[in-house]
Amino acid sequence: MLLLDEPTNFLDMAAREALTRFIQAYDGTILFVSHDEYFIQQTATRIIAFENQALIEK
């Protein structure tokens, strides 16, 4: 299991694209926290978010 906290922070576009491809190809479990909506949409298969002081699954 990989745990990543804001993995796209401080990365240039080439590094972000490489990270996205790696995560898409990775067969294991990855839990990450990110505010990067594009990255989330490209990589997440399940999204759990805080909204109105509650956890919800999107």
Score class of each variant (00 low, 15 high):
5 D>G: 13
26 Y>W: 15
17 E>R: 12
52 N>T: 10
27 D>M: 12
27 D>K: 14
33 V>I: 10
49 A>R: 14
14 A>S: 00
43 T>F: 02
18 A>L: 14
56 I>K: 14
42 Q>H: 06
34 S>G: 15
57 E>T: 14
5 D>N: 15
47 I>H: 00
34 S>E: 10
48 I>M: 11
21 R>Q: 11
12 D>F: 08
46 R>P: 01
48 I>E: 09
4 L>P: 04
37 E>P: 00
49 A>N: 04
48 I>W: 06
1 M>Q: 03
47 I>T: 11
48 I>N: 08
3 L>M: 09
24 Q>A: 09
33 V>G: 07
21 R>L: 10
19 L>I: 01
40 I>Q: 09
32 F>I: 10
51 E>S: 09
24 Q>T: 05
29 T>E: 06
41 Q>T: 02
56 I>G: 05
23 I>W: 02
53 Q>L: 06
55 L>W: 07
22 F>A: 12
46 R>T: 14
5 D>M: 06
50 F>D: 03
41 Q>H: 05
24 Q>R: 15
45 T>N: 14
37 E>N: 04
18 A>Q: 13
19 L>Q: 04
22 F>W: 11
51 E>L: 01
2 L>R: 12
58 K>T: 13
26 Y>F: 15
39 F>S: 09
1 M>E: 08
3 L>Q: 05
50 F>C: 07
20 T>G: 00
18 A>D: 05
27 D>I: 02
23 I>D: 03
28 G>K: 08
27 D>E: 14
57 E>L: 05
7 P>Y: 08
49 A>F: 01
18 A>T: 14
10 F>Y: 15
18 A>C: 05
34 S>Y: 09
51 E>H: 13
38 Y>H: 12
38 Y>F: 05
1 M>C: 01
35 H>Q: 11
38 Y>S: 03
9 N>Q: 11
16 R>D: 03
13 M>I: 15
